[in-house]
Write a protein that binds this DNA or RNA. Sequence first.
DNA 1: GCCAACGTTGGC
DNA 2: GCCAACGTTGGC
Length: 137
Amino acid sequence: MQYWLVKSEPDVFGWEDLVRDGTCTWDGVRNYMARNNLRDMRLGDIVLFYHSVIGKEVVGLARVSRESFADPTDEKWLAVEMVPLAAFKRPVTLTEIKAQEKLKNLMLVRQGRLSVMPVTVEEFELILQMGETKRPA
DNA sequence: GCCAACGTTGGC
DNA sequence: GCCAACGTTGGC
């Protein structure tokens, strides 16, 4: 079981869109490091859903429902599918994350432009706790 | 293969 | 809207 964080601009595709649709194809990633992370995602892995630009906060939890396959928008790249699991009771803002000593190595902080990144179990548990959210069964 | 120019992301 | 960070492109 691995943990991840993905970023999306909510005016393009946000958490509400994922909840409405019940599933999504995570495509359009055009960065090799992010692509490698998509490649390494396994069925059932848990994904923190982060709103970039607007909101700048972690808003929900999703689960990988299909492992990587050719991106339908450009088959040279990869996509995965994910389904929503739970909204955060309280969104966790980037400001709060940056204020946490234990999250200083989070790639969201260290490498701001990466859009798909791994998260350690410790980081994951802390962010969940900050969001006053329980991990769904 | 180096590196300057350029484009994009995303926080501020 | 600005601009820092950084990935990509292309000339040499």
